[in-house]
Amino acid sequence: MTDTKLDWPADVHKVLRDEGITEVAMVPDAGHSRLIELCEGDNDISLVTMTTEEEGIHMLSGVYLGGAKGVMLLQSSGVGNIMNSLAMPNTCRIPILMIVTMRGEWGEFNSWQVPMGQGTPGCLEAMGVRVLRVDQAEEIAPAVKAASRLAFDGQQMVAVLISQKVLGFKDFRELAR
């Protein structure tokens, strides 16, 4: 996890509340764990675990059709799973907000994470998603707020990509000891 003193998940949680987001769809990631705990403890927010990430994009498409707002929490490997699910929000101009924790790009120890991590921005952009990259903890909450406005006011699909620089990278040799 991050070595910064800044509690960015608390700031993001506050942004989600302020923006009127009530549905959180997620496939968990270590980098999202504190934000997930904060959402779990919030009676105004419903957290739904998915078996795979495309379920989340489908659910959020329906949530918006029904008049509510949601966010998807996922990691970069999961971005590979959502491509065709973005067809509906793309062609229907349904706002989609995603917060993606990145792997495979900054000191990654697991080579299997590299292909999708490196491919994440390109895949998202190919499907019409606006990508906001952040690599400083203090930038995350403002980026989520800007992304939420761009999504729900600007009727866009928007992903905030949180760099491994913020999340910290694992050393697998340490973990194996």
Partner: peptide, 25 residues
């Protein structure tokens, strides 16, 4: 009625999302 012309595999979850947002329907 909402006709989902694509996004194969998603109909159940799309409907589920609507149901979450519209609990009285």
């Amino acid at each position: 009625n909402f006709y989902i012309w694509g996004a194969m595999g998603g109909a159940a979850m799309i409907g589920y999302g609507v149901a979450r947002a519209q609990p009285d329907k």
